[in-house]
């Protein structure tokens, strides 16, 4: 049996070893007019010890991609193609009982809305203890002790006294900390944070980001952080994937992305970050139009109808994600950007 506090002593160096590898994942929704594609053959990967930021407009499929990997999709939404490998095993093909061990045990989730993602009639301490008892085989007393440590770890004042509180007795920021503690309970190798700060106000947002950064360095896990807000995570992530209409349109190390945003959509995203961000960033004000609805995707580049640089070919063919420069670490799915670089 594991000890009550089995925090890994040293953060593993970034080895370049794939922890999560999603290939060609396609998600469809059942509609009255037949199936409609929401996520179209998405590819993403996260290395051991790496932190990946996923950015994109509301509705572009960020949450569904994460949920689908863990087979947590709602009823009418299904994965129709592709694989999601975690530590070399395809989560899509795994048995239910194996998958349950991965969920919560190896992969921790933090959800968008701390107000509704906690069970309102269960005490905080019990909600924290649940995965410990289930995944780590702890006794109730051990789990409670560890739950207290976890609350302390995420900076909740009077942690031990809080174990018996119900969620509605905590503020939004405190609840989000509890969610993080639950996500971290079993020392996951991967933490998936789905817009964990959207429901919180700006100062708390920054605190939560710092908290996760701190914990990541201490516990040495990989993190996927989903957000609308590029500026918020600039200091946290190693690499960013920009999502548009269910595909990755740009994949770049964080510095390269800010220094040299190559996809017109990314450029629009960056342009819409207010310089002095004391208020929530106005989302994508500089890009006109709206993303395509599921089932009404354009034939060529999904961004073409809104793209200021669109050419004839953009309406005909879908650009693939190609590496720019020598090492190919910066990849973009845009004909114009790719041509520019070849010419240079």
């Amino acid at each position: 049996m594991m000890m009550a506090s089995n925090i890994r002593p040293e953060p593993p160096a970034k080895t370049g070893e794939r922890l999560l590898d999603v290939k060609g994942l396609t998600i469809e929704i059942e509609t009255r007019t037949g199936p409609a594609t929401i996520v179209d053959g998405i590819d993403l990967h996260v290395d051991k010890g790496e932190t990946l930021g996923i950015v994109g407009e509301s509705g572009c499929g960020k949450s569904l991609t994460m949920l689908s990997m863990m087979r947590l999709l709602p009823n009418k939404i299904k994965v129709t193609k592709g694989e999601a490998n975690f530590a070399g095993r395809d989560l899509q093909k795994m048995s239910n009982s194996d998958l349950r061990k991965v969920r919560g045990g190896d992969v921790g989730f933090i959800f968008q809305d701390p107000m509704t993602s906690l069970n309102p009639v269960m005490r905080i301490g019990q909600q924290l203890a649940e995965p410990l008892i289930y995944h780590r085989g702890m006794s109730k007393a051990e789990a409670r002790k560890r739950a207290g440590e976890l609350l302390k770890l995420v900076g909740i004042p009077g942690a031990e006294d809080r174990l018996d509180a119900y969620p509605h007795e905590l503020s939004g920021g405190m609840r989000q900390r509890v969610m993080i503690a639950i996500g971290l309970a079993c020392n996951p190798q991967l933490l998936i944070a789905d817009e964990p700060t959207t429901a919180l106000d700006v100062t708390i947002q920054a605190q939560i980001v710092d908290l996760v950064k701190d914990l990541r360095d201490k516990l040495g896990m990989s993190v996927v952080w989903i957000t609308h807000d590029l500026a918020l995570i600039a200091g946290l992530v190693d690499r960013i994937n920009v999502l548009y209409a269910g595909t990755v349109v740009e994949d770049a190390p964080v510095d390269a992305l800010f220094a040299n945003p190559s996809h017109p959509y990314t450029q629009g995203l960056l342009a819409s970050i207010p310089k002095l961000s004391d208020e929530r960033s106005t989302r994508l004000s500089s890009i006109g139009g709206t993303p395509p609805e599921p089932g009404r995707r354009p034939k060529g580049c999904p961004f073409a109808p809104r793209c200021p640089l669109a050419e004839a070919i953009c309406h005909e063919r879908v650009p693939s994600l190609e590496g720019l420069g020598q090492d190919g670490a910066h990849r973009v799915a845009c004909f114009v950007a790719q041509r520019k670089l070849e010419a240079a």
Partner: peptide, 16 residues
């Protein structure tokens, strides 16, 4: 409700 998805994401069994 989201807390059910959250519970599933914790790997808890249907019975629990």
């Amino acid at each position: 409700r989201p807390y059910i998805t959250a519970a599933q994401a914790l790997g808890l069994t249907n019975r629990i």
